[in-house]
Simulated assay, not measured.
Amino acid sequence: MEEKKLMDLIDELMTKLGSTEPARPRGRWVEATKSKSSPSKKPRRSKTAYQLKISLNGIRPPIWRRVLVPGHATFDQLHLVIQEAMGWEQAHLYEFHFGDIVIGIPDDWDFYGFGKMFEDARHIPIEQWLKKEKQKFQYTYDFGDYWRHTITVEKIETLPKPLERATCLKGKRACPPEDCGGVYGYLELLESAANKDSLTDPELRERLDWMYEMKGDDFDPDAFDVEEANERLAYIQL
């Protein structure tokens, strides 16, 4: 994407979001306590921007998002970007995988290390690991349902000024509901929804009712709203 067109797109999206701060969504965000001591040194902000494609593994037609993220964003912040762009609820643990390197939030890592090296996602900027276009790495969310995503570095660009927020450029299909049983559980729900008029299994009927309760009666697995995704992303300052 040409630099001018890219910046125009970002400005247009930010304008649509408006200048006022709406209420934060679903109580998931908490304001950080302000320190009364001298302000800490402002972290370096990178003019490098990464265009990433996030694809949910194991589902066809594919569910994916294309986002633009600044190089100074930490992997923990990238986790938040993925959550909001995809439509997840930030209710479970996560990890990024680069071969034998695991990047996440420390949580009894020594217990299941198995020879892997672990890094704290809160302290590592993505530009430290993302070095070239077409590079791929894995993001796993919810170690129960085990949602695996493949992330591809599509473009690395230098912008006139650092990005303040991530932007969703495009995407396809709706995010599955949380805690639905992973890929196979979701595919079973979609099949049940397609045959709901002739569905006789009471357990499947109950699970289908649960899905619509979670996602709304008008849930469309093929729908995706990029503006709605950017409204969620606007809460993440990078």
Score class of each variant (00 low, 15 high):
Met1Gly: 14
Ile10Gln: 06
Glu12Ala: 14
Met14Leu: 14
Lys16Phe: 13
Gly18Leu: 13
Pro22Arg: 09
Ala23Thr: 10
Arg26Thr: 07
Val30Arg: 11
Val30Pro: 00
Val30Trp: 00
Glu31Arg: 12
Ala32Pro: 03
Ser35Phe: 14
Ser40Val: 13
Lys42Leu: 14
Arg44Ala: 15
Lys47His: 12
Gln51Asp: 02
Val67Asp: 05
Pro70Lys: 09
Gly71Cys: 11
Gln77Leu: 10
Val81Met: 04
Glu84Ile: 01
Ala85Asp: 05
Gly87Ser: 06
Ala91Gly: 05
Ile103Glu: 02
Trp109Glu: 15
Tyr112Cys: 04
Phe114Ile: 00
Phe118Thr: 01
Ile124Lys: 12
Phe137Ile: 03
Gln138Trp: 03
Tyr139Cys: 01
Trp147Lys: 02
His149Trp: 01
Thr150Asn: 06
Ile151Val: 11
Glu154Val: 08
Ile156Pro: 08
Pro162Lys: 05
Pro162Met: 05
Ala166Pro: 08
Cys168His: 09
Glu188Val: 01
Ala193Asp: 14
Ala194Leu: 10
Asp201Pro: 10
Arg207Met: 13
Trp210Phe: 13
Lys215Pro: 10
Gly216Thr: 12
Val226Phe: 11
Val226His: 08
Ala229Ser: 14
Ala229Met: 09
Tyr235Phe: 15
Gln237Glu: 14
Gln237Leu: 13
Leu238Phe: 15
